[in-house]
Design a protein around this nucleic acid. Structure first.
Length: 429
RNA sequence: GGAGACGUGGCCGAGUCCGGUUGAAGGCGCUUCCCUGCUAAGGAAGUAACGUCGCAAGGCGUUCGUGGGUUCAAAUCCCACCGUCUCCGCCA
């Protein structure tokens, strides 16, 4: 969430920033109004509390001296104050809650240099690499859901039978390729990132802490009996890892990475992208994540982008980098770059990574701070995240890009160390 | 799943039975200063976060796992939840 003090001091600037996303700015006025009332009532309540504390001390002293009558008098007075305090308290709490929930629905302010525009059509293409539409042979123009099924390395029908539509199953060499991609994705970042294997199922509290609830409840899987949620991304447990903590500046930047399954109901996109691996309910992903100081954030954003893009580039996949327009940046982000690979068979660009700089927006909500080495007090950290490797779509792009005229699929060189001598896929085994 | 014990500041650890200047003894750690040829030892002072008011000094409030309740007053009493530990059962 946004800094209430910033809104208080300069509501117009905040409104201007929010407007760039195409979101209504009237909520800012609501926030300012609520905030003023919360503070006014809060001050009054605090004064009464202070008075009650004073009286209570006196009561104690009087009892000790055996002056019960005088004490009883003060008690009556204090009791009356207590009722007033309670009433004020309820009002203050109610308003504070309203303020908080209003504030939670305000998205982060886009970075000043994020491109203008409200839709993905306004995204700015930063660069394209390795893409030449003329260069693809007819053998590469076969969508993976056809070629992979034919080779027996992807089995959608049976997965659907056991789990429903939009679930998939990899088999044989296909499963091995998937596993190789995960190891590859983790290993190439091992120089700087700590590998985490977090739980994939978390409490309601945890999902709420990262802002995935209540807003995206419809998009997440819920285990009702135990009131647990399947994570939509490793971002959830990674953020929660340090939620509420105060870090030392010396430990920053904290770099974390995690491979997990990610679960998404895709409630809003039923019927779209249903073929093959374009959009699935459960997928593997290697997530890169960092907490750092505001000063380190810019470089860290570039570092994560470079690492995510590097992984795609070294796999030899055609790809492009987009600088997202304000209106297309997700709620917590201030600046986001997307990486899309080109899948020649499906004949379309597939988003495989979204690298976001969330400034202190997430940290404020999760309450992650750090203690500066110089100076006193605490500051909120900045958080950044990006998919290091979203497996299914990369898998699909490899299967399509590396398909040979004879129908076999050559393996990218960088994956060979993970494939135990398998240089091509000619069948499931 | 059953039975029991427990959850206090950066850490260890008193206080909880018998509620009252206890935001919390003592210790460790850390910071600054003194002493000292250097280091160690020793001495002195300081050492939570957040909110709010204030130019500031500082005042007030909140926080002893979390949330409720009782009371003039709660770390202390009651309830619920979360978590940890021990024993038993079960089990990859």
């Amino acid at each position: 969430m946004l800094d209430i003090k910033l809104i208080r001091n300069d509501p117009e600037a905040v409104k201007a920033a929010i407007a760039r996303r195409g979101e209504p700015t009237s909520v800012i006025d609501d926030v300012v109004r609520l905030d003023a009332r919360v503070r006014a009532i809060g001050t009054e309540r605090d004064d009464i509390r202070a008075e009650i504390k004073q009286l209570s001390k006196q009561v104690g002293a009087l009892h000790k001296d055996g002056r019960g009558d005088e004490a009883a008098e003060l008690q009556t007075k204090s009791r009356a104050l207590g009722e007033r305090e309670k009433a004020l308290g309820e009002e203050a709490d109610g308003l504070a809650e309203e303020l908080r929930s209003t504030l939670l629905n305000v998205s982060n302010m886009p970075a000043p240099d994020a491109p203008d525009g409200l839709t993905e059509a306004d995204n700015v293409e930063v660069r394209v690499e390795g893409h030449d539409p003329e260069s693809y042979g007819p053998h590469q123009r076969i969508p993976h859901w056809e070629s992979a099924e034919e080779l027996g390395i992807l089995d959608v029908d049976r997965a659907v039978r056991m789990s429903g539509s939009m679930f998939v199953m990899y088999r044989g060499a296909g499963a091995r390729l998937l596993r190789a991609l995960i190891s590859y994705g983790l290993d190439r970042n091992r120089d700087a990132f700590e590998e985490i294997r977090p739980p994939t199922v978390v409490k309601t509290e945890t999902m709420t802490g990262t802002g995935h609830l209540p807003k995206f409840a419809d998009d997440a899987y819920h285990l009702e009996r135990d009131d647990l949620w399947a994570i939509p991304t490793a971002e959830v447990p990674l953020t929660s890892m340090v939620a509420g903590e105060i870090l030392d500046e010396a430990e920053l930047p904290l770099r974390l990475m995690a491979h997990t399954s990610c679960f998404r109901r895709e409630a809003g996109s039923a019927g779209r992208d249903t073929r093959g691996l374009l959009r699935v309910h459960e997928f593997d992903k290697v997530e890169l994540y960092s907490f750092c100081t505001p000063e380190q954030a810019q470089d860290m954003h570039m570092e994560i982008l470079a690492r995510a893009e590097g992984a795609i580039r070294d796999l030899g996949l055609a790809h492009r980098v987009l600088d997202l327009a304000c209106g297309d940046i997700s709620g917590a982000g201030a600046r986001t770059y997307d990486i899309e690979v080109f899948a020649p068979g499906a004949d379309r660009w597939l988003e495989v990574s979204s690298v976001s700089w969330c400034t202190d927006y997430q940290a404020r909500r999760a309450n992650v701070r750090y203690r500066p080495t110089e100076g006193k007090g605490t500051r909120f950290v900045h958080s950044l995240n990006g998919s290091g490797l979203a497996v299914p779509r990369v898998w699909a792009a490899i299967v399509e890009t590396y398909r040979q005229p004879d129908g076999s699929i050559r393996m990218p060189d960088v994956l060979l160390p993970y494939l135990g001598g398998m240089t091509e896929i000619t069948g499931a085994r």
